[in-house]
Simulated scan of single mutants.
Amino acid sequence: MWDRIREKIAGLGVSARVDAGGDREKGTHNLFDAAAAYVSASAEDDQDGIEEAASWVSPEALSFGVSELACRAVIALARERDESPRKVARDLLGLPVA
């Protein structure tokens, strides 16, 4: 079931072509490419990178990709720390443990 949902959503993410200067010389970006580039650029405070990544897919697709990346990152960090995903997420946001 999840595979079918991911395939449908991934179809939404294929968008703009990239000219020379991107990670790919000529090709398309999917929502996960865009999410990874967007989050990386945000972490580096790279406004040009943020704007470029945001132009690759629709805002809805980018939002889904960023959300999926956040979930995967929290799960990976929780496993690494041997803590619950809820505790890790709250720690990352500076919130008290509920």
Rank of each mutant, 00 (worst) to 15 (best):
W2R: 13
W2G: 12
D3F: 01
I5D: 01
I5M: 10
I5K: 14
E7Y: 12
A10S: 12
A10V: 06
A10G: 08
G11N: 05
L12T: 02
S15N: 07
S15C: 08
R17L: 10
R17I: 06
R17Y: 13
V18K: 00
D19P: 03
G21F: 03
G22N: 07
D23A: 00
R24T: 06
R24D: 00
E25D: 10
E25R: 13
G27T: 04
G27S: 12
G27M: 02
H29P: 02
H29C: 08
N30S: 12
N30D: 12
L31E: 06
L31S: 03
F32E: 04
F32V: 13
D33F: 03
A34D: 04
A35W: 15
A35N: 10
A36R: 07
A36M: 10
A36S: 10
A37W: 05
A37V: 09
A37T: 03
Y38T: 05
V39H: 02
V39T: 15
V39L: 07
V39A: 10
S40P: 03
S40T: 12
S40G: 04
S42Y: 08
S42T: 14
A43Q: 15
A43E: 14
A43I: 15
A43G: 10
D46S: 07
D46C: 04
Q47L: 12
G49Y: 07
I50K: 15
I50P: 00
E51P: 03
A53W: 01
A53E: 02
A54I: 05
S58N: 04
E60I: 09
E60P: 00
E60W: 05
A61K: 12
A61Q: 07
L62H: 06
S67A: 13
S67C: 09
S67N: 11
E68T: 08
E68R: 14
E68K: 05
E68Y: 03
L69S: 13
C71L: 03
A73H: 04
A76E: 12
L77Y: 07
L77T: 05
R79L: 14
R79Q: 13
E80G: 06
E80T: 09
E80F: 11
R81D: 05
R81P: 14
R81K: 11
D82H: 09
D82F: 05
R86E: 07
K87S: 12
K87F: 10
A89E: 06
R90W: 15
R90G: 00
D91C: 03
D91W: 15
L92G: 14
L93H: 13
P96D: 14
A98I: 11
A98H: 14
A98E: 14
